[in-house]
């Protein structure tokens, strides 16, 4: 019973880390540049969860002050992650622009084909 208690308490973190590791795996194992960027985005969103999960209080409410409520979830991680989401889409846009340029220069977005063409004299 104790074991199940621990699992229930930390299930969020386990799934979050699984998603994070899946993002890492996509980035390192796949050669397609668009898929790499999607993997990077997955890694980023797992970090959002990792920040916001500890801020939740069970039985609490969203951090908007109202006389009917006294328990609010922690608003500070929300603020930090709002910034991170917007920065994430900015980096995604820059990455996609680079992919489009690479595709124009090499005619491919597969890492192995690009390296092959780059080495050819």
């Amino acid at each position: 019973m104790d074991f199940f208690r621990t699992v229930a308490d930390h299930y969020n973190y386990v799934i979050t880390i699984f998603v994070m590791v899946a993002g890492l795996y996509i980035v390192t194992s796949r050669g397609n540049l668009i898929k790499k960027l999607v993997g990077l985005a997955i890694f980023q969103t797992s970090v959002y969860l990792l920040y916001i999960e500890p801020g939740k209080i069970l039985g609490g409410t969203a951090p908007i002050l109202h006389p009917d409520f006294t328990v609010y979830s922690n608003p500070l991680p929300h603020v930090l992650i709002l910034t991170a989401i917007v920065v994430g889409v900015a980096t995604l846009a820059l990455g996609l622009a680079l992919v489009v340029r690479i595709n124009e220069a090499f005619g491919s977005i597969e890492e192995e084909e690009i390296i092959e063409k780059d080495r050819a004299p």
Binding site: Y48, I52, E53, G55, K56, I57, G60, T61, A62, P63, I64, Y72, S73, P77, H78, I81, L82, I85, V86
Partner: peptide
């Protein structure tokens, strides 16, 4: 998780 502003974004 009560992060409604982040959810909208």
């Amino acid at each position: 998780l009560d992060a409604v502003d982040v959810a909208m974004t």
